[in-house]
Amino acid sequence: MSNQRPPRIAIVAGEASGDLLGSHLIQAIKAHCPNAEFYGIAGAKMVFAGARSLYPMEKLSVNGYVEVIKHLPELLKIRRNLKKTILANPPDLFIGIDAPDFNLGLEASLKSHGIPTVHYVSPSIWAWRGGRIKKIAKAVSHMLVVFPFEAVIYQKAGIPVTYVGHPLADTLPAQPDRDGTRARLNLPIAQPIIALLPGSRVGELKQHAQLFVETAQLIQARNPQVRFITPLISRATREIFTAAMHACEHLPNIQIMIGHADYALAAADIALIASGTATLEAALLRRPMVITYRVPKITAYLMRRQAYLPWVGLPNILANREVVPELVQENATAPQLADALMALLEDKTRRAEIETEFTRQYVSLKQNTAEKMAAAILPYLKCD
């Protein structure tokens, strides 16, 4: 690479959690290479950190077999056009952030053209579709993993890997301030509060909005003192959730927030969460939770045929046991979720045990991730 131009990095994230991780990664690299340029597919946080997005990140935010098939022609066209753009003026490095179904194929092609590729956040090969390790070996020059047990898998496969910890553990407080956060959000200090996190994608809200609202309605009928807070990151998701609320016969006391899931979780006693990165965020904030998830029936059938683990929630996977309840698919009903949440709310001893396990996970994942990421990536760049 000539020193006449700054380091250039093509980068792709596919959803809100990847956008957050990508923003941390960009900041980590810029701390050492302030003039580094990033372009590709990025969300608002990555753009704010300095990336130039060529396509809306939301185009990639689809999940499940059925949903992906519906959007496949558009996704393939975006990937072809992005590959042409990258190869027309090759960067020093490509970084794919999660989104393995989109990124791994792109990475394999770019790597075959001599462009180094880093993939950040391992696909869940320890949970299902373990055969992907062969595809990953062809696609990835270096894998950055966020969980300690993942590094062993890649070492055995001969794939360069670095365990960097999880950046959320570095950014979230060591001692979450429940009362202080409630005061900041104008929430009552003494009343029980349950955070509702139905997901970040429109598809997730279509599956979960009515379920979450009906669950809140049942809980409030049993304990009128309970209040609910729901952080939603986009207008589209807020509209779906609001419509579900107004379809209720008895409107539960739900306060909708614009984003800030961390505030909602810090303020809450417990949470109901659609499986995903939000479950890890809740664990790192030491908030007991009930995990749920619904997908179309055919998607659930296909995923179950390939699953290796009995859990879907990251806190349970990290503990290798059921720390918090999981009620998914046909078990994800409002009465069952309400019962599980009320049991958790009323059992202080159990909540304390869960919080102890979550403290252990917080310590394990707090690794000064920014410096570890930079140390793994900088050898691919020449910084002035």
Rank of each mutant, 00 (worst) to 15 (best):
P123D: 10
G96C: 11
S109Y: 09
V118M: 04
P123F: 05
H113M: 14
S109A: 15
Y120G: 01
E107K: 08
D101K: 03
D101T: 06
P123M: 07
N103M: 01
P100W: 05
G114A: 14
T117K: 04
L104I: 15
A99H: 14
H119G: 07
G105K: 14
F102H: 03
L106Q: 03
S112D: 10
T117Q: 03
F102V: 12
A99N: 04
D98Q: 08
T117I: 08
I115T: 03
A108V: 06
S112W: 00
T117H: 03
P100N: 12
V121T: 14
L110P: 12
E107I: 07
S124L: 13
S122N: 07
I115M: 04
L106G: 00
G114N: 14
G105T: 13
N103I: 01
V118R: 01
E107R: 08
V121A: 15
F102E: 09
L104K: 14
L110A: 04
G96L: 06
L106D: 08
I97S: 03
S124G: 15
L106A: 02
L106M: 10
G114C: 13
H113R: 15
F102D: 02
F102L: 06
L110D: 06
L104H: 14
G105L: 13
P116I: 01
L110V: 04
S124R: 13
A99W: 11
E107Q: 09
F102M: 13
A99P: 03
I95M: 07
P123W: 10
D98A: 05
H119S: 05
